[in-house]
Write a protein that binds this DNA or RNA. Structure first.
Length: 276
DNA sequence: CCATTAACCTGACAGC
DNA sequence: TGCTGTCAGGTTAATG
């Protein structure tokens, strides 16, 4: 489900809990995509939430005891806030419950269980299995047109799969890859080495533009994704190609077809008339 | 190096 | 009301 904008929206919402202490963590199952470390309950007890940030699609909750919780939402994961509810109340698929001071509770809910819930030493984050091969986040200061060019220009893979490759850029998923490529009018079938220098600049700009706009709209809600308070994102109303059949061209008001193809077992939506 | 396939899961939806 | 098949914001391992 969630791509960078949805994860970012989650992190922004979670920031209200910075400064609170973890009273206890309750595990309602011992694994998601990976096993959840058993000692997570002991390590986190009475620790303070110092800061919360995001790298790619990962949420990082830094505690004041030199450890950090690492969370990935997978396809259907969501962090839910139970601020004004009975602390004993939980819903189906609330696999992890985090009880906080001030009688707050947040849970990790994930029907399909492709998500990750882990804890590692904060200083070991960059060298951990989650981050040691991860490409730059699009909002990292080092992320540039030249970085994109360097990583992609020799590749014979399609630009769509390059955008989805988290080892190159971290955070873009299937929806935003389609929307970004439409925005810069590049065909998803084009290979990295067949894209011009000028197009790399356009691609770079579209990545930032589309992701920023989506964050501004609090992400996209198709079925699973909602904010931690259950509020829907809005960006799905701005999709131009994803899940669409056609688009009205600005140039001449004519209708252009949008087609759905398969690339690496994922659906790609694009407009062959506009994207070259 | 790259594409393809399958695998990990549940739930929603279409069609019969 | 079923049942069946398909599809889904992700990632990874195996195979050719």
């Amino acid at each position: 489900m969630p791509e960078l904008p949805e994860v970012e929206t989650t992190v922004l919402d979670l920031n209200r809990f910075v400064g609170l202490y973890i009273r206890s963590i309750k595990l309602n199952r011992n694994n998601l995509r990976y096993p959840i470390p058993k000692n997570i309950t002991i390590i986190t007890k009475k620790s303070k939430i110092q800061s919360i940030n995001r790298i790619g699609k990962y949420i990082i909750i830094n505690l004041n005891n030199l450890f950090s919780l690492i969370i990935h939402l997978g396809m259907s994961g969501r962090i839910k806030s139970y601020e004004f509810k009975d602390l004993n109340y939980r819903e189906k698929h609330d696999h992890v419950e985090i009880f906080l001071t001030k009688d707050k509770k947040i849970t990790f809910n994930d029907p399909r269980r492709f998500g990750i819930f882990d804890i590692i030493k904060t200083e070991k984050i960059p060298n951990s299995k989650y981050f040691n091969k991860l490409g730059l986040d699009p909002f990292d200061k080092k992320f540039s047109k030249d970085y994109l060019h360097k990583k992609m220009c020799k590749s014979s893979a399609s630009i769509k799969s390059l955008l989805l490759n988290q080892k190159i850029i971290s955070g873009i998923g299937n929806i935003y890859a389609c929307e970004i490529l439409f925005d810069c009018k590049i065909s998803p079938l084009k290979t990295g080495k067949n894209i011009s220098n000028k197009q790399y600049l356009l691609l770079f700009k579209s990545i930032k533009k589309i992701l920023k706009l989506a964050i501004k709209n609090k992400g996209s809600s198709l079925k699973d994704y909602k904010s931690i308070d259950g509020i829907l994102g809005n960006y799905q109303n701005n999709f131009l190609v994803y899940n669409k059949k056609s688009i009205k061209m600005k140039r001449n008001n004519k209708i252009a077809k949008i087609i759905k193809i398969n690339q690496g077992n994922r659906s790609t939506y694009y407009c062959p008339t506009i994207q070259k």
